[in-house]
């Protein structure tokens, strides 16, 4: 079992351009081992907030704490051992002439012994189904594969906390759910996962807690259930719950006892009731 650290961002302020602050007093707590979804419209500050958690960006106001310790004096290269970050665009994070070397890059930056690097690379190739393309140049792969390689290359760092910045954009549902199942497994082993996404179906299926950002501030937080029910919040953050949530709500209004945020859950819930009726 992995013991992930507790991350805490307190009243963060940050601006890429002085005239337009990207964060305006954002607060966030990531409890050890939680699967947190960070949602909000384009430009609401999700990535900017997440990049403070491993020191990629340093706030102009506010603090970030890792297990209670202020990280302002800790180098990003060091924080990388605790918090792994998968960036939005795979093309911004592929540096090596082969997939194999790409997977080993982080562990080598860490200065791990060669045998350990090799072992992690081999496990990563296996795990993400990249064995057959281990010698290919990442640049020659399809978008979907480049994305998987970029994720595998962070996974070999084995950080207790993963930040995934829109990891499924451009992937089909098959690859996306395969990938997310992998992180659900890591989560079950104790890793914390912070998922930045627009895909509310992923939120419903995987996240245990949702934090909603709007214009650089946290405007809502709660379980997916609570957030999807909060009409004004959804409106303000320009979010839309999955279709199945809409259906379940309609059924509840019509007097049925049914629940579930995913197809599987709603299906089970309805069958329990349906079979009861039929005795």
């Amino acid at each position: 079992m992995i013991l992930a650290p507790r991350l805490e961002a307190i009243d963060l302020w940050f601006a890429y351009e002085a005239e337009r602050p990207a964060l305006r007093g954002a607060d966030l707590v990531v409890e050890p081992g939680e699967f947190l979804a960070l949602v909000g419209q384009n430009g609401s500050g999700k990535s900017t907030l997440a990049k403070h958690l491993n020191g990629l960006l340093r706030p102009v106001g506010g603090r970030v704490r890792l297990n209670g310790e202020d990280i302002s004096g800790v180098a990003t290269g060091q924080l990388a051992r605790q918090v792994g970050y998968v960036f939005q665009n795979p093309d911004h994070q592929l540096f090596s002439p082969s997939v194999e070397q790409e997977l080993g890059l982080g562990p080598r930056y860490f200065g791990l012994p060669a045998a350990e690097v090799e072992e992690r690379v081999q496990r990563g190739l296996e795990r993400f189904g990249l064995r057959s393309i281990a010698q290919r140049g990442p640049g020659t792969l399809s978008f979907g594969l480049r994305r998987i390689v970029s994720i595998a290359a962070v996974a070999t760092l084995q950080p207790p906390v993963f930040i995934l910045d829109e990891p499924t954009t451009g992937l089909d549902w098959g690859s996306a759910s395969h990938l997310m199942d992998h992180f659900a497994e890591l989560h079950a082993q104790g890793h914390s996962v912070i998922l930045i996404t627009h895909d509310m179906r992923l939120v419903a299926r995987y996240a245990s807690r949702v934090v909603v950002l709007s214009e650089g501030r946290v405007v809502g937080r709660g379980s997916p259930q609570e957030v999807f029910r909060h009409r004004e919040l959804l409106q303000a953050a320009r979010l839309q719950p999955p279709r199945i949530v809409e259906l379940v709500e309609r059924l509840v209004i019509s007097g049925m006892e049914i629940e579930g945020l995913t197809v599987e859950a709603a299906c089970r819930s309805f069958l329990t009731r349906y079979r009861l009726k039929h005795g």
Binding site: K51, N54, L56, A75, T76, G77, Q78, A80, R81, G84, Y85, F87, N89, H92, Q93, F95, L105, G106, P107, Y109, F110, A153, V154, L157
Partner: peptide, 12 residues
């Protein structure tokens, strides 16, 4: 972003 990605992978 690219330099950030390198640093996030442990480049000090």
């Amino acid at each position: 972003t690219i330099v950030q990605a390198q640093r996030a992978r442990g480049l000090d």
